[in-house]
Design a protein around this nucleic acid. Structure first.
Lengths: 215, 215
DNA sequence: AGATCCGGTTAGAAGCTATCACCTTCCTTA
DNA sequence: TAAGGAAGGTGATAGCTTCTAACCGGATCT
């Protein structure tokens, strides 16, 4: 909305068409995956013919990059919103899981198979950093007062908190551990690797996070 | 080798051409990813023109399925070999990590972004089951004598050991936990999501498995 | 030796990305 | 207000892809 109302009518129209293109792209991705995404098909769905779409996105890669950016943005907003609402790490995990399950291919656009040679533009890596900041902030509380493990020292790095103080190794380790455990369960669940086994993935996730909290 | 030496010369020729096709396919996948895999390009590299390749694989999907099968087979053999050599779970983890790092796209062919609507043929899911059997066997030792956690009961299922006895919930939970923690660290590492952070992914993996062992 | 099967060929349909040249319509500027 | 440029849309086209169809020659089997 904020993007659509500023500047000239032409700009608003342009923004809306771009949004419609992305909307149809998401539908194709959700049902058929990224490799099957066809600019031609999207153009026809919008009632315009082929090359017109290149007025809005320079090429297929640029459209996909825009989708990745939007996915990251939505992901970061979800994490941020849950944190601001007072959620702890378990709360964040469930918010992220709900977001991912709503559109698995959107999650895999961020954390799925990487394309060899592709490097995300800097504004996207900046969003990834936003998420890390929240994860680190949410990891402060559960770590305080715990004795340091032999591994923690190796995780001290140059990252600083918002006030400029360095992030302790234990906090970084806790945040990364949360991240990898969540992704480990979630990605295998979304990819269907648990089908046939009879346990509830949510229960497994809870167990993994429970152990993280009591370690 | 065993596939190439049996039956008639024609069969041997056929098996070898199929192997050469897959060889070139792997090279394309490793450097450009699955979506860029081109049957036409492979045919030209082999000195034959386009459609000839369809004598060996009915279509693109069948070739990719064959690659997935080979990847799973290699993965299962790696796990099995490490276990038979006496490796514990940590040893299995490092064997798997080495195997995955040797060709990340091969790992992602198994555990990467799923294609909506694709279901692996039964012989492939059977290989996946082989891996699970080894993981369960390797999880027997570290679990024995540990007090049951509140989560363990929910993981009891109909799976049986080779001698027919049921797998305890604690063992299944341990095996799945190992699997998800390893995959969580490994897939994010291979996808490059740790670049910029200054810790060693191997150290993170060790920490995760260390906690698993002491929980 | 004759029939069959198998692996290769070229031609071609249908689809894709992407570029080009052209046309119209809107918006801005003198 | 008239002129001119910018933006959006078009069809044509190049070049790539998967995959089918028709055909041909040689190896294999009966």
């Amino acid at each position: 909305m904020t993007e659509a109302q500023r500047r000239s009518p032409r700009d608003r129209y342009r923004a809306q068409v771009r949004a419609e293109i992305k909307q149809h792209a998401w539908e194709q991705i959700a049902t058929q995956g990224v490799p099957a995404l066809s600019l031609n098909a999207i153009a026809k769905q919008l009632g315009m013919s082929g090359p017109a779409l290149y007025r809005y996105f320079a090429n297929r890669d640029e459209l996909i990059t825009a989708l990745i950016r939007d996915a990251y943005r939505g992901f970061a907003d979800t994490v941020r919103a849950a944190f601001d609402a007072g959620a702890d790490l378990a709360g964040l995990a469930h918010a992220i899981r709900d977001w991912a399950r709503a559109d698995p291919q959107r999650y895999f656009l961020i954390y799925g198979t990487p394309v060899p040679g592709y490097h995300a533009p800097e504004d996207i890596t900046a969003i990834a950093d936003e998420v890390m900041v929240v994860l680190l902030a949410a990891s402060e509380a559960p770590v305080t007062g715990k004795p340091a493990t032999p591994f923690d020292d190796r995780f001290a790095n140059r990252r600083t908190r918002t006030d400029g103080s360095p992030v302790p190794g234990a906090v970084l380790r806790h945040a990364v551990s949360f991240w990898t455990r969540l992704h480990g369960v979630l990605s295998l669940e979304l990819a269907g690797h648990f089908t046939g086994m009879e346990f509830d993935p949510e229960l497994l996730l809870d167990a993994e996070l429970h152990e993280l909290g009591t370690s």
